[in-house]
Structures are given as structure tokens and as C-alpha cells.
């Protein structure tokens, strides 16, 4: 069997295992869905977001939070899922066993990426369906917006997956993996406009967040799902799609190099 076919086989195997783990299903797969539901219900009576000066127009809390939750889902399914998963596999002997078989490293990565792709697509589909049918969020009607959703998603999920692989080297043990990784992604979510309205953050914090990819994924998703009038509260009063692509691409290349340089089946001589 060739490297690609083995990778596809791994993806199937990995996805099956993913859905058998209760904790990842909750903290990675369902988390953004749960948060969207809570925010939509909790802020439903707090009035509309982005109303005109005369109080007309605006959107519901569910519509306002949907883009951020999609971006968070991409981040969790890529970085949190893979960094914790691979760190656990390194410490419980899974990687050692695989390293003794003729499985090519590339097939292993294809498998991980396939699992991330399948689970995150399901997650985003669920988010959009729940937002639309349970909370009445209007979905974009122009094909171009769905096209933007596709490329921001693909670039975002690839970058997150690669960064997850690179970050999996940071925890020393499988047990400490969640304690090391979850705070990183949690802080990112708070400063990148997932839980808190980005335009209300102080400028210096916005600038820090702009270094990291999540802020840009969230911005891309806001372009897709929010009315165009919301662009005026973005940095520079524009959606800035070109910069979104550029920042994500830089993180993708950096992550690829880091993952390539640091990945080993086992910590040799530890």
C-alpha cells in the first residue's frame, strides 16, 4: 500500500477512535456548540448588536457570536486536539509502537489531518445548522461569501493542525498535555474576539492578538456571516481579507517547519 492510501486508512482509523473518546468529544468537538448555545440564550434579551442610531436593524446574539465560535472550533479541532492527542500518544507508547512498524511518518500525518478535517467539518456544519434552525441566524446568500468561508476554513484548519503537531512537543508528559495546551488556546480565544467583542478590546491587546492566527480566522468568519456594515468596527474599518490570508500562510509555513524539525516517533534517550 502506498503512503497516501495508508494515510487515508489511518484517517479512517483515527476518526473512529476520536469519536470513542468522551473527553475530546466534549472539550474539542461540542465545546463551541455549547458556548454558542449559552451565549445565544444568555444574551438573547440584551438587545441587538450593531443597531442603527435610531435603534433599528442589528443582529441577534446568536448571529453575532457564530463567526467567533466557528473560528474557535477550527482552532480547537486543530491545535488543541492534535497537540494533546499526539503528546498522549507519545507518552502512552502508541508512537513508539508505530515507530517500530513500516508506517511512513507522512501517512501518520495524513491520518491526523484527515481526522481533523472530518471532525472539524462536522463540527462547523453542526454549528451553522444549530445557529440557523435553533436560533434563526440568517445565512449568507452570495456564493462569494461561501467561497471565502471555504478558503478561510481550509487555510485555518491546515495551519491549526500543523501548529498542533508542532506544539505536541511542548508537554513533557501525556498527563500534563491538557494543562499545558488548554490555557494557551483559552487565552487566545479571549483576546481574539471569540468570547469578547474584538472591537471593544484596548488597542494594545488587539495588536497582540493580531500576531496570532485566531484573530484573523475570526475576522474572516465575521466577513462571511456578519452584515457588511460591521466592517466599520474592524481594525482599519475594513475586512482586510488579504492580510488574513497572509498571516495564516506565514503561520502555516512556520508551523510546517517546526513540525518537520521537531517530530520524532519517540523521545530518544529519555
Amino acid at each position: 500500500m502506498n503512503t497516501i492510501a495508508l494515510g487515508v486508512d489511518r484517517a479512517r482509523y483515527e476518526t473512529k477512535i476520536y469519536f470513542r473518546q468522551g473527553d475530546t468529544i466534549f472539550f474539542t468537538f461540542l465545546f463551541p456548540i455549547v458556548m454558542l448555545s449559552i451565549f445565544s440564550v444568555a444574551f438573547s434579551s440584551a438587545g441587538k448588536y450593531g443597531t442603527n442610531p435610531d435603534g433599528s436593524g442589528g443582529i441577534t446574539a446568536a448571529a453575532f457570536y457564530l463567526p467567533g465560535m466557528i473560528a474557535a472550533g477550527i482552532l480547537l479541532s486543530g491545535i488543541q486536539n492534535l497537540a494533546v492527542d499526539i503528546a498522549m500518544e507519545r507518552s502512552d507508547g502508541t508512537l513508539k509502537r508505530l515507530g517500530g512498524t513500516p508506517l511512513p511518518v507522512v501517512s501518520y500525518f495524513i491520518g491526523k489531518f484527515g481526522q481533523v478535517l472530518v471532525t472539524s467539518l462536522l463540527q462547523i456544519a453542526l454549528l451553522i445548522l444549530i445557529a440557523h434552525f435553533a436560533f434563526g441566524v440568517a445565512l449568507p446568500t452570495e456564493a462569494a461569501k461561501w467561497g471565502t468561508l471555504a478558503w478561510v476554513y481550509l487555510l485555518g484548519i491546515t495551519t491549526s493542525a500543523v501548529l498542533g503537531i508542532a506544539l505536541s512537543r511542548v508537554p513533557r508528559t501525556g498527563k500534563s498535555a491538557t494543562a499545558v495546551i488548554i490555557p494557551i488556546v483559552l487565552v487566545l480565544q479571549f483576546i481574539s474576539g471569540v468570547y469578547l467583542q474584538f472591537s471593544l478590546l484596548p488597542t494594545w491587546l488587539q495588536n497582540i492578538a493580531s500576531v496570532f492566527p485566531l484573530k484573523w480566522m475570526a475576522q474572516g468568519m465575521r466577513y462571511v456571516f456578519l452584515p457588511d456594515t460591521f466592517s466599520k468596527v474592524e481594525q482599519g474599518s475594513t475586512w482586510n481579507l488579504g492580510t488574513i490570508a497572509l498571516v495564516l500562510a506565514i503561520w502555516l509555513v512556520g508551523g510546517l517547519i517546526a513540525a518537520r524539525l521537531t517530530f520524532r516517533w519517540i523521545r530518544k534517550d529519555s
Partner: peptide, 20 residues
Amino acid sequence: IDWKSRLGIVLQSTGESGNV
């Protein structure tokens, strides 16, 4: 890879999650 395909390795016991 070719070399590894000719080997069989039984390590000292490991603690994999065993969800399969």
C-alpha cells in the same frame, strides 16, 4: 521503512488507551 517491514517488535508493556 523496508527494514522495519521485516521486523516484528514486542516492546515491554505499554499503556495505550485501547479504544479499538
